[in-house]
């Protein structure tokens, strides 16, 4: 059953990049970083103090952008059913989607954070803490995205409901992610890692159950 993981992941990653969907979060984060200085003014101290938090908000919203195309199109086209007929369980399908979704938005987002932090005049220490926070937080955001995508697959106006569902669940990530930007905030990183572990662990089970229930 695990041997299906790699082909499914590769298919999802290829679809994300060839469909152009993987560029959306990157462009979104970059846009926010370039617009923010225009909105609050070019004061380097103000930008440096608030820019990191702004990048976390942008990263969180960017993670929600591709939710609609994560699971619903595969349910509609019959791809999920074909996987199930081949004995691949819902949980394995979700796990493959989770890893593929993270690979197509987590690392690109972390790379985009480099030029973005330059635009926001973040100092080197803050940048390093931001990158560590994103490395811990983006897998959790990916898990949340897949979970919400599975819960809303097949609903009308799924994207609006997806946003409403995901945002409250993402608040802890934002609190501890942005909280970890200050010096000597190791505890916030540990909380961030704990939340990430929890979300990644429950997503295959919860999203798998949601998909199974949706098939009735």
């Amino acid at each position: 059953m695990m041997r299906a993981l790699w082909p499914l992941m590769r298919r999802d990653i290829a679809a994300a990049w060839s469909g152009g969907g993987a560029w959306l979060p990157v462009i979104f984060l970059f846009l926010v970083a370039s617009l923010y200085p225009f909105a609050v003014g070019p004061d380097a101290r103000l930008l440096g103090a608030t820019g990191g938090g702004m990048l976390w908000i942008a990263a969180l919203l960017a993670a929600l952008l591709p939710i609609e195309r994560l699971i619903a199109p595969d349910v509609e086209s019959g791809v999920i059913d074909q996987c199930l007929v081949r004995g691949i369980s819902d949980e394995i399908i979700v796990l493959a989607k989770l890893i593929a979704h993270w690979l197509s938005f987590g690392p690109p987002l972390m790379i985009t954070a480099l030029p973005a932090s330059a635009l926001l005049k973040l100092d080197a220490g803050t940048l390093i803490r931001l990158e560590i926070g994103l490395a811990l937080g983006t897998p959790a955001l990916a898990a949340l995205g897949v979970l919400v995508a599975a819960l809303t697959a097949g609903l009308r106006s799924a994207s609006a409901i997806a946003g409403l569902l995901a945002l409250p669940l993402a608040v802890p990530l934002l609190i501890f992610g942005a909280g970890a930007l200050h010096e000597g905030s190791g505890a916030a990183l540990k909380f961030l890692a704990a939340i990430a572990l929890l979300l990644i662990a429950i997503t295959p089970i919860a999203a798998g159950a949601a998909m199974r229930a949706g098939r009735e």
């Binding site: 299906a4 679809a15 086209s77 019959g78 059913d81 081949r86």
Partner: peptide, 23 residues
């Protein structure tokens, strides 16, 4: 069944090969 389960943006040969590999 009524749904082909083939990725719309892929070439037909590749889309079929995806399932053949899984099998």
């Amino acid at each position: 069944d009524e749904r082909a389960a083939l990725d719309a943006d892929r070439r037909l040969g590749e889309a079929l090969r995806f399932w053949a590999r899984l099998d």
